[in-house]
Design a protein around this nucleic acid. Sequence first.
DNA 1: TATGAATGAGTGTTCATTCAT
DNA 2: GATGAATGAACACTCATTCAT
Lengths: 184, 184, 184, 184
Amino acid sequence: MSPAAGSRRDLLIDTALEVIVEYGVAGTTHRRIAAAAGVPLGSTTYYFADLHDLLGAAFGRFADEISERFETRLARARTVAEAITEVTGFMLDDFQEPRDLALSYELYAYAIRRPAVKCFVEAWFARSQQALARFFDPVTARLVDTFIEGVFTYRGLARESSDADEIRQALSRLIGIDPSGSRE
Amino acid sequence: MSPAAGSRRDLLIDTALEVIVEYGVAGTTHRRIAAAAGVPLGSTTYYFADLHDLLGAAFGRFADEISERFETRLARARTVAEAITEVTGFMLDDFQEPRDLALSYELYAYAIRRPAVKCFVEAWFARSQQALARFFDPVTARLVDTFIEGVFTYRGLARESSDADEIRQALSRLIGIDPSGSRE
Amino acid sequence: MSPAAGSRRDLLIDTALEVIVEYGVAGTTHRRIAAAAGVPLGSTTYYFADLHDLLGAAFGRFADEISERFETRLARARTVAEAITEVTGFMLDDFQEPRDLALSYELYAYAIRRPAVKCFVEAWFARSQQALARFFDPVTARLVDTFIEGVFTYRGLARESSDADEIRQALSRLIGIDPSGSRE
Amino acid sequence: MSPAAGSRRDLLIDTALEVIVEYGVAGTTHRRIAAAAGVPLGSTTYYFADLHDLLGAAFGRFADEISERFETRLARARTVAEAITEVTGFMLDDFQEPRDLALSYELYAYAIRRPAVKCFVEAWFARSQQALARFFDPVTARLVDTFIEGVFTYRGLARESSDADEIRQALSRLIGIDPSGSRE
DNA sequence: TATGAATGAGTGTTCATTCAT
DNA sequence: GATGAATGAACACTCATTCAT
């Protein structure tokens, strides 16, 4: 893959994500992506076998982005309390609204019927659990990540969702420590 | 509304849900719904102004169904411990796989861009919180429902999700009681 | 035909004309007429065999209206000079803009392919010539009416069309008299 | 534009005109045009953004054709008398029946609601006046063209319309000369 | 007499995809 | 390697018309 080709491929992937945010998967077409990226229509089928290929690549990149952001957050934490703080910060600050929320829901709906794409979600969740495993036992790590997913759903779709304090408190309880507690 | 008309409208709504489960919102068309329902194509636009109208009605019904199932479950509970049991049972037994999971993700993705449909989700979550409020304070009720949402996401998309015991334990912690405890 | 039926039929005819003005023949449908008239859709096919029937009746009424207006105008004239004045007034004052112009063009286009409707136009032109025949010989009467038709086309479609003086002058020349002349 | 592409676009425009003649604007569809032209349905929307685009292009071409025919006619005239002869010949010989008459009426009706198309008519009339201005003052030129328009309406829609002698006579009077007169 | 229900044919349009260059 | 041209299948939707009541 030449650098030029690589960058156009990249551009198409990023643009696909933008288009999904704006129109949803159902409204994402070769034409819209090509137009938004400012490239010829033909190049969308040149770099990707078909639309699902491109969509899959886009969602794969999105899942990676999120995972990296989450890992970066947690890498800063040294204690369980810090981990809680970072996780809360990730949920409330890192997750961009409405882009990331929209992409998540679209990805989930899309993944149900696409095993290859579902793998990206599985890998994303697995990486999250692994990052959490530095501080928690596997079962708790999964519980924490499960709760994180719930918060995202609530943030995007409920009338009101929990604030930082409530989330921190919930996390503390979930991992079985006193919210004001010190360490593991 | 004659019984016949009512039932055909109803049939269309139920069939739309089936089609969404099988093909996703993106693959749901007037033609597929009409064919699956065994009715003339024209009747899909006779009973519903347009496809979004039909989709909206379908998702509205789905959200209602879920809310009713949840309320029915919780109505059986008398104590907090029983509430936990019922909530766990709801998550693991009532929520049909893959139908309900698929419909939830499709609904969430669809709702982002459709305020009218988003209202159904908001109402669903509000009813869940209200049902939980018989046992928990409002903040905790919302936290519990948030966790429930996370469990659904995990159930449908993660490699492994929590089992009954883990969920029960998480719920107990979330509401701040000893998992084996009684109270109320 | 009962009075009630007659009036609803009449209402439909008049409303059809309004709808044609607003949407053109191509955009005129049973539904739009029924909605604009505030009557049930079914009544449009109850009173008229089909849409062309209704359209034909509407154009027939329009042609009659115009003929009557033209005859009323000319009835006031006693001399050729007055006839010229009335004809000019008819063209510039009686012919409502854009309603009558739009209806004329729509009628002409519609009439080409509909012999029954073409008859209405023929009758209209014949009545005009007859009304003019009180003042002019048949050939001149037809020439005058021909010119009138041209003025209508120009009024609706040209950047600029002739004013009252120019029209009066043209008419005078056409009938072979001095514009300031007295009689026949 | 490759010759092939250009010719298919051209073919579509010419075919659209044929279809309008046969079915009227109201009966002109992508499918009929494609079938009449012997091209795939998809190509009608490939070359033209939508049906109005194609219809507009077709009417634009028609208006141009007429203007060119008129100018060609008048270019042959050297004297006013010859101009009258040419104009008369244009009306009675050049204007094909029923094609041109039908297209004119359809165009006029279509133009009322389409400013872009109305411009074509305005341009056509302006070119006619300009061509006539070689022989007549502007006001008279407009009057002559106005009369021409009336003749067309009459030719297509009246029971009887003026013959060559009558037209020639009317024209002579309209321009204020003796029908048998000479003058440059 | 009058109308709401219903439908099949057809409309304009979109678009994934193919392919020659 | 890259792309403009091209198209067939499908889509959402409209509507004239029929008919049972």
